[in-house]
Amino acid sequence: MLTVDYDRLAVGMGTKVIDVGAGAGRHSYEAYRRGADVIAFDMDAEGLAEVDTLLQAMGEAGEAPASAKAQVVVGDALALPYPDGEFDVVIASEILEHIPSDDTAIAELIRVLKPGGKLAVTVPRWLPEKICWLLSDEYHANEGGHIRIYKADELRDKLVRGGLEFTHSHHAHALHSPFWWLKCAVGVEKPNHPAVKAYHQLLVWDMMSRPAVTRLAESALNPLVGKSVALYFEKPFTNVAPQ
């Protein structure tokens, strides 16, 4: 389930990509599949070990071009261990809402992006996220949970002040918003609740089969209740550090 539009990022053969806060690796897998040289970067060593296993399996199965490279790196998004301008594409999907020092993380994302490169940032959208917070403290008040709710224009302005040019935005995963509202309403620690299980089965079927009816429904609903907002930026060649 991808949140980022890879065609908009022009990810292809030889593109140097870092997926910061890679999590379970979904965006790293797609970049590798398209022939990019990708780094899946996260602070969760155990989770990254699983990502590495799958990346290696993809390579052995020929699911990525032979020239593509993929590796996992354990580290802190507040101090990326790379020189300035190292990457063609930087992806930070659903991580900034977890990080107390988000301005520091944003500065690092911008620093390692090369002039002319593209950055994609996704976070939970304000309205669906606000409803989740109102329905359940368990949803966000836990270790490593969401610590803030972004308004898209406020987050956009943070990155523009950092020297980037805003290019596009879209919403995604509208069908997931009611699922999370339902989970919050019945209790996020009750995955076996009949209604939650039934909706989860629907989402799995949708992700695996991608039927036209649900694709059309989600496309129509994304502008209204899309669970995530994706923001796209480019780093100018004449980037001047803000005063």
Rank of each mutant, 00 (worst) to 15 (best):
V204Q: 13
G163I: 08
A31G: 05
M13R: 15
D153Y: 11
S67G: 15
L134R: 04
M207R: 14
P223K: 03
V240D: 10
D103Q: 14
K158D: 13
V229P: 06
N192A: 13
E234K: 09
G47I: 03
V38L: 08
A120D: 06
K158L: 12
M208Y: 04
I99R: 09
D88T: 05
R161N: 15
V11K: 12
N222I: 07
P65T: 13
P115V: 01
V89A: 02
H193W: 07
E138F: 02
R8D: 04
A66H: 03
G21A: 01
D42N: 00
A220T: 01
E143G: 00
V90N: 11
G35F: 11
A40H: 07
G21Y: 03
A79M: 06
A77R: 00
V213H: 11
E189A: 14
H173W: 09
A22S: 09
K197W: 03
A24T: 06
R26C: 09
M208K: 15
P242M: 05
D19C: 04
P115A: 06
M207F: 14
K130S: 00
H176G: 07
A172H: 14
A61V: 02
A152T: 11
I147P: 03
L55K: 01
V20F: 03
D76R: 07
L113R: 07
F41P: 12
L202T: 14
D206S: 05
L202A: 15
T53L: 09
L80A: 07
F233Y: 12
W181K: 09
